[in-house]
């Protein structure tokens, strides 16, 4: 009979884990315990094997993932790159409590701009557009708090991207126009 008890304890531990992971995430950090319990009842815990794709570049994205356990690698495919092995360009590796794919929460039929692959046995918490809609319909106060944080995250990403683009433009300009040679 012991295994039954073990399983029960494991379950409650897992539930606590999900809630604590949600609490630590920027999107859900403004929620009180009751709202967190509500969001916890909506999210989807998904398990991935090492090497298994979470999503592929070009697929329609429906939502974001929070990493509860394991590591996720992000790749971008370059169809123009020579040789099949060079097509996937490694972008970054994400670990526990990181999150990715949040742009899909606000996009209508938006495509994934990169691929995500599990580096090791990973547990992800999926929070998708239908879940966000449900939060907004059933608990608008919590929904607005999440949306405000989501806007903040997307704004920050946009700012970073703009800075990167400016840096690259400067670099390209410098490459095109070599500094004047002193006579």
């Amino acid at each position: 009979m012991n295994y039954l008890w073990d399983n029960l304890f494991k379950r409650s531990k897992k539930d606590d884990d999900v809630r604590s992971i949600l609490r630590e995430n920027i999107l859900f950090q403004d929620l009180n315990d009751r709202d967190l319990r509500f969001v916890e009842s909506l999210v989807h815990v998904r398990r991935f094997h090492a090497g298994e794709p979470v999503f592929r570049q070009g697929e329609v994205g429906v939502g974001m993932y929070l990493i509860a356990k394991g590591r996720i690698e992000i790749f971008v495919s370059d169809p123009n790159a020579p040789g099949e092995e060079n097509r996937d360009i490694f972008i970054t590796q994400l670990g526990s409590s990181d999150f990715f794919g949040e742009l899909a929460l606000v996009e209508e039929n938006g495509r994934r701009t990169a691929s995500a692959v599990a580096r090791d046995e990973s547990t992800l918490i999926g929070f998708f557009k239908p879940d966000l809609t449900e939060v907004l319909e059933r608990n608008p106060e919590a929904g607005i708090k999440i949306c405000l944080r989501l806007a903040e995250v997307l704004g920050r990403r946009l700012k970073e991207t703009t800075e990167k683009v400016s840096e690259l433009r400067r670099a390209i300009k410098e490459l095109r126009e070599p500094p004047p040679v002193n006579p």
Binding site: H44, R46, F48, E52, P53, V54, F55, E59, V60, G61, V62, G63, G126, F128, K129, P130
Partner: peptide
């Protein structure tokens, strides 16, 4: 996992 997002949508 491979069809989870489509199925949910």
């Amino acid at each position: 996992n491979s069809i989870f997002e489509i199925a949910l949508d």
